[in-house]
Amino acid sequence: MTEPIMELKDLKRYFLVHKSGGKQVFVKAVDGVNLTINQGEVMGLVGESGSGKSTLAYAVMGMYKPTGGRIIFKNQDISVSSAKRSLSLKKDLQIVFQDPGSSLNPSQNIKQILELPLKVHGLAKKGDLDKKIIDLLQTVELSPNYMYKSPATMGGGERQMVSIARALATDPSFVILDEPTSALDVSIQAKIINMLLKLQQAKRLTYLFITHDLSLMRNIATRVAIMYLGKVCEMADTVQFFKNPMHPYTRMLLSSIPVVSEEEEALKPQKVVSTGEIPSPVDVPPGCSFHLRCPEKTGLCTKADPVMIEAASGHFVRCHAYAKM
């Protein structure tokens, strides 16, 4: 077993939503997540909108201070907001955001965007700043001609490549990819994913890949975890995960994916029909939070919240159906 680089221990992040009646109401965006990410891994964190996957990523980045629990990075507790984090920690931990439109400043050119991390962390001397930027552009397979282009004149794929170059400029060891390709076309997604995997090999990076796309994770993740309403409901090695999806929610997700071949169709759980919507995280149903949509629910599910169990070696699932066995 390789060494863990990032450990989340019972991580919680609640948001206060004021509600009349004098009672404080919280949105439990992340509600007790335990997750260990090993050195050199591509950890896929999958969930629909409102599942809390982005909140989790942002808490790891320090954009939110955790409400409870701990974040351990390289044996160091980093459960504080980014303002309290050291510059060297910021250098080591980077993120690529989903929306390539909003993550690049529209009033700057590519040179200005890429020189920020180099200047802040003293990674380039004045004289060879240009050369460094050209190097960065080339690591993401963009021509030096992009130096003075503005993000507005570039396509989404190119912009995302610049975002990746910016995140890698500080030479981090852990990178969160927050749906980096979900706004892009598949032909461009394929290119960017390939590039990300190449860079991961070359720079020995660890990725936490946040996405809603299970088919993508099938092809690139070493392990996959599914989140639903702030909690992880299933986690396993990728091959194991897709061979034997256990949680009813996972099966519903899998059966909903539009596919392009008969072989894939055969892999989809056939009998599950997608019903209902993810409830508002303000009032999470009692018991198992999935029971309203679950085709296999029992009386127990409406009362008790299941705990995570290891149903098979390395395959964790949070469902009463497996606890009985």
Binding site: M61, S82, K90, K91, L93, D99, S102, N105, L116, V120
Partner: peptide, 21 residues
């Protein structure tokens, strides 16, 4: 906006964020 967050996470100064971003 994410570009402001990105600059914060890189560790840019408040001055930079206010006047450059």
């Amino acid at each position: 906006e994410y570009f402001v967050t990105a600059a914060e996470l890189i560790g840019a100064s408040k001055f930079h964020i206010l006047f450059r971003e």
